[in-house]
Write a protein that binds this DNA or RNA. Structure first.
Lengths: 108, 108
DNA sequence: GACATATATCAACCGTTTTTGATATATAGA
DNA sequence: TCTATATATCAAAAACGGTTGATATATGTC
């Protein structure tokens, strides 16, 4: 059963979808230095404001980033839980890592 | 500089794109039990043959899986390097993990 | 209140991805 | 060689995702 290997496939594919665009991966890398407001990201990426806002929305909906308003500015930050979940997924599906959790016949 | 955090952004977003579809994540989970031929995956996923073949092609092009022919059958298997790369990415961008690799001013 | 700045939302457009059904290729066995 | 099975490829349609420019909302300052 798939579920025994990694319990939350939909959430996983949502994370991966959020990271499937190079611009969004760049945003994540920028945020890995610490939280940033939209205008800082805009300068760093030289991206149109609505375009950046769109990508931040995708990342936020997927739970990869969080946002917080401070005065006029909105600061975005990485969500550690999502990053841990991604690493967990990669670890969980690595062949041989779950030999105990399914029938002996199916796992090499 | 983005490159200091994770050196191969394009490869990362290619991996993530390959995993951005729920069907493909399911395939990966099935393959985590060991290599499988296309017809076994077809039974497990109840997916049309050409559809499955398409998704396997995407995973293969991204380097997430490998294939090998044995007689009439083609067996697909996970590529550990890609899974390691994904886990590495998640670890590398986790805030605080790369404090030494960039200017003190930028990292909290 | 009027104005400026930061960010989000919307609609239109365009290109890409996915699905489907049909056909092609490869291998094996009779 | 003929037939059956496994898989890949192709073309057309449908669905989706990203970009752009315009407009809306929220906040702060004068």
């Amino acid at each position: 059963m798939a579920a025994t290997v990694f319990p939350d496939l939909d959430r996983a594919s949502t994370w991966f979808h959020a990271l499937s665009d190079p611009t969004r991966v760049e945003i994540v890398v920028l945020l890995s230095h610490g939280e940033r407001c939209v205008c800082e990201l805009q300068d760093a990426l030289r991206a149109a404001q609505s375009r950046l806002s769109f990508h931040l929305g995708v990342l936020k909906d997927a739970g990869v980033v969080t946002d917080r308003r401070e005065g006029r500015w909105v600061y975005y930050a990485l969500n550690r839980n999502a990053l841990d979940g991604i690493a967990d997924f990669a670890r969980a599906v690595k062949p041989g890592k779950h030999a105990g959790s399914c029938q002996a016949a199916c796992c090499a």
